[in-house]
Amino acid sequence: MCDFSLSTWILLFLFVAVIIARQFTWMLLLRKIDCLKMTVREVCLAESRFRMSFKVGIAVSVLCAVPLLASMIWDMSQMGDRYILIGAWTGLVVGTLIGIRLFLKAWSGIKELKEAITDLQ
């Protein structure tokens, strides 16, 4: 009854792979920032690379999520139960709001990092 199409599963695994790659990239970039061992210029460059990686990572994640969600909702609409579809749209709205909140919180953390580096100068 709740069987998703092959395209939905492929998009799901692609999305998970993108998220894992994004997180490892951010982890590696953050690990490289060491204010005690680096010059101010090096720290600024590392912070700039991380900020750009953050923006690109979020954009690529969203671009992978849109077709996944469209495919999942399409598959759910074919199941014939309107409550599944209502739940999917409700989850999409709630998930979007939570995602925006988390993005803004993370972005404020990046701004704080930038301000701390600016104070070093």
Rank of each mutant, 00 (worst) to 15 (best):
R22V: 10
I98G: 01
T118W: 08
G95A: 04
S108I: 07
F13P: 04
S5A: 06
C2D: 07
V94D: 01
K105H: 04
T118E: 15
F50T: 11
M72Y: 08
F4H: 03
I10Q: 13
C44P: 04
A88E: 01
I19M: 09
V43L: 01
E112V: 05
F4S: 04
L11G: 06
F15W: 07
W89L: 15
W74H: 12
F24Q: 13
D119I: 03
Y83C: 00
S53H: 14
D34R: 07
I100T: 05
Y83L: 04
G95T: 00
V16H: 06
C35T: 08
R49A: 12
M79L: 04
Q23W: 11
T25E: 14
V60E: 09
V94H: 02
K105P: 01
V40E: 11
L11Q: 14
R31Q: 12
G80A: 02
R101N: 00
T25G: 09
D119Q: 06
D119S: 08
R22K: 13
L69W: 11
S48C: 07
D75E: 08
M79V: 01
A21P: 09
E42Y: 03
Q78C: 01
E42F: 02
G87L: 00
L28C: 12
Q78K: 05
L85H: 05
R101Q: 05
C2L: 13
I73M: 11
V93A: 09
L36H: 10
F50I: 08
A70V: 14
L113D: 05
S61H: 08
V60G: 08
Y83A: 01
F4Q: 00
A65H: 09
D119T: 06
I98T: 01
V56P: 09
K55I: 09
L113H: 02
M79K: 00
I33L: 03
Q121D: 12
R49M: 15
L30N: 07
M79C: 02
A65L: 13
Q23L: 13
D75T: 05
R82F: 02
A46D: 01
M27L: 15
G95C: 00
L45P: 04
S61I: 07
V56F: 12
G80E: 01
R49F: 15
L69P: 06
K32W: 07
S108P: 00
Y83N: 03
F15P: 02
L69S: 14
M27A: 15
S53E: 09
M1N: 00
C2S: 12
L97S: 02
K55H: 09
R82P: 00
E115C: 06
L28F: 15
R22C: 11
M76S: 04
F54V: 03
L102K: 02
F24K: 12
A21Y: 14
C64I: 08
L85V: 15
A59Y: 09
L113A: 09
F13M: 08
K37R: 03
M79D: 00
G99N: 02
K37A: 02
G109Y: 01
A46V: 03
L30Q: 04
V94M: 00
S108D: 13
P67R: 08
L14T: 10
K114E: 07
L28E: 13
L69M: 15
F54T: 10
D81E: 03
K55R: 12
S48W: 06
T25I: 11
A17E: 07
L45R: 14
V56C: 09
M79H: 01
F50L: 15
I86P: 04
V62D: 08
A116Q: 03
M76L: 15
G80S: 02
M52Y: 12
S7Y: 11
D119K: 13
T90W: 11
C35V: 06
L120V: 00
